[in-house]
């Protein structure tokens, strides 16, 4: 065993220098030079250059004039320092109660339409940036009411924001909530801000 200790110690030292420092730092160097936007978190900025979020990370939306993301189990909701799913099993009482409560509220705002599954379920990360196109269309009547915009124009905006699966079958169709809401703010400013400005 002792004769093996020298190569064990020396190789671990060399591996640490090569794989633990040189490798990640080299990738960081290439990344920061070639792909700075992605390497720093795909940040989205407003016209003043202020960071309003990451294109990849969901953020909390509760105001009725915005499209809402999915329920989130990350911290108190969309806590990007504490990603997490609910980890609740399919028969968990709290899960069933939560989905029922959420469904009652959603049904009140758009009676008669089928509530999409992703509208009442928490994502795996708690930071899902997307909702299904069906979920966006389900929320369209509320947004159209709150913004005083014809429903057709809101659904047209949704359709323009839908990302289709790669080659038609890799991944699922989806709408990025932050991008959709930013497009919404750009095209149809909220009624309150129209009055104010």
């Amino acid at each position: 065993m002792l004769s093996h200790l020298r190569p064990a110690l020396v190789s671990m030292g060399l591996f640490t220098a090569l794989l633990g420092l040189a490798y990640p730092l080299a990738v960081t160097g290439v990344a920061q030079a070639a792909f700075p936007a992605q390497a720093n978190g795909s940040l989205v900025r407003d016209t003043d250059g202020k960071v309003v979020g990451s294109a990849l990370i969901g953020q909390a939306f509760a105001k009725p004039e915005y499209f809402h993301g999915r329920p989130s189990a990350a911290g108190n909701g969309y806590d990007a320092m504490a990603s997490s799913g609910s980890n609740m099993g399919p028969l968990n009482d709290k899960l069933i109660k939560r989905e029922k409560t959420d469904a009652v509220a959603l049904r009140a705002e758009n009676p008669g339409s089928v509530i999409p599954a992703d509208a009442v379920t928490t994502s795996a990360s708690g930071l899902d940036p997307d909702i299904s196109p069906a979920n966006a269309r389900f929320q369209a009547p509320r947004v159209s009411r709150e913004r005083g915009v014809p429903l057709g124009q809101v659904t047209a905006l949704i359709d323009a924001q839908v990302q289709q699966p790669l080659l038609g079958f890799i991944g699922q169709p989806r709408v990025n909530v932050l991008a959709l809401n930013r497009a919404l703010d750009a095209r149809f400013p909220p009624i309150a801000s129209q009055k104010g400005g």
Partner: peptide
């Protein structure tokens, strides 16, 4: 849970990402 909440129950979306 999705059946109990009377929402679309064609796929189990708890703990899954939309994409």
């Amino acid at each position: 849970a999705q059946v109990a909440a009377k929402v679309d129950a064609s796929v189990n979306m708890e703990g899954k990402e939309v994409r």
